[in-house]
Amino acid sequence: MTDWNKDHEKKIMTKYRFTLTLRVLRVLAACLLLFWVYMMAVNILSDAAHSEKKHAFYSKLALDWKYPNLHDDFGGFTKKEMTPFLTQKISYPITRKVGRDYQAVGEVQLEKRLFNTYSTLNIQRFEPNNESIYRFSLPENPNSGRKLSDNGKQNVWSSLSKIHEGTVAELAFSTKSFMKPEELLEVLKPYDLEVLWMPLYTGELKEFQTGFGSGGDSIELTSIYGFTGAREAGDNYMSESKLALTQEFMDENKAIMLKQMETLLKNESQSYYENFLGLDHLEERYNYLKENGFSVYGAVVTGPVKELLKLKQEEQIRGARLGELDYWNWE
């Protein structure tokens, strides 16, 4: 029989610690392997379903409709990450068009969780936008038909007249009446400008209630949709294309926008397009556009400042607001 002593006890304890450590390391290695296999399976299934591409595409669609003159970096790199809790994190850069060039202004950050209620779409800007120029006044009360005024700044034309002619800028304005998009493009045809976005009337305050601000004899809606060049996706969202907002593609732009709205309503839940994408009252707006057609009451345009200044003579234009300026980049 072996005598028990401190040296023997020390050897046994050392062996025990070594065995325990080895077992712990084996368990950790097994857990890491299982986690690696789990994450690989999650990413493979996600890629096979093209879910991240779908979420990115629909977020860009919401960007087109809800945010004037904000563009994704078309063809640019989209970052994506899948967390262990199946949250898809997606981000891509966004730009603003001034003249012919695009200025980087920030990025869109998506977090698509299992539950749409907790999913988020945030726009992170490099610089805070203190006062938005994208404010549009309704030309008339939708219920009574009474003509409304506009509270736009009257010194816009004076400011434009003092800016050097070797400059380009963006300008937003409202119109004195509802117009078809084709009609507004015809009004702007004589001017060397590019039309980027038009606020759409989609039945607000008449077919459904939404937020608005009023001052004096004007009404500004707080949540609006806009009309711009239509965006389409290929099979499984593997490719994208976008049309220009011109007379040539007008019918296609209208048809594609209605088709995209219908697809969202049929294939996605209300919590997806409302809570996640921020597309409020989508069904009511879709029904109104389908039944009544497309009516706009303003535009966002860009071009040389002296060309923008000429818009002062147009009887339909009111409530102009001057946006960003840039050095000459126009042809």
Rank of each mutant, 00 (worst) to 15 (best):
K180L: 11
Q103R: 13
K290T: 10
E183K: 04
D73C: 00
E284Y: 08
T246D: 08
E283C: 05
H55P: 06
K54L: 14
E283D: 12
E262A: 10
S218C: 01
E182H: 01
V27N: 05
N329E: 06
W4S: 09
S269H: 07
L138I: 08
I163P: 09
D47A: 05
Q316I: 15
L28T: 10
A233T: 02
L121W: 02
R231E: 03
D251F: 04
P181N: 06
T14H: 08
S46A: 14
G99H: 04
Y67R: 08
Q109S: 08
E107K: 10
S241F: 14
K206F: 14
W36C: 11
S51I: 15
L70Y: 14
E262T: 05
Y92R: 07
Y92D: 00
D64M: 04
E165Q: 10
E268A: 01
L34Q: 10
V27L: 09
K112H: 01
Y67A: 01
M198W: 01
G106Q: 13
V296Q: 10
L309C: 05
T202D: 06
S132D: 14
F212I: 09
Y327H: 10
Q154P: 04
G213V: 12
L28E: 10
S119A: 01
Y92G: 05
F77E: 13
E315Y: 07
E111P: 00
S51Q: 15
E220G: 02
L325P: 04
G75C: 07
E315R: 14
K242C: 13
L33D: 06
L322N: 02
D217Y: 10
K162G: 03
F126W: 12
L148H: 07
D72G: 03
N5W: 00
Q103H: 14
S161W: 06
R113L: 02
E314A: 07
G215L: 06
L245I: 04
Q109K: 09
T117G: 00
L148S: 06
K11R: 14
P84T: 00
L193R: 01
F173N: 04
K97W: 14
L265Q: 00
S271T: 08
M257N: 09
F126Q: 14
S59Y: 06
L34V: 14
L221R: 01
M39H: 13
E232F: 08
L205A: 04
F249N: 13
E52W: 15
K180S: 07
N236I: 13
F126N: 11
I133S: 09
K312T: 00
S269R: 02
K147W: 07
K79A: 09
K54P: 00
F294C: 09
M1N: 03
K206N: 08
N116H: 13
F57V: 11
C31D: 15
W36I: 15
G298Y: 13
R26E: 12
N130E: 15
Y102R: 03
F227I: 07
K89S: 00
L279F: 09
L184I: 03
R17Q: 10
H50P: 02
I163D: 07
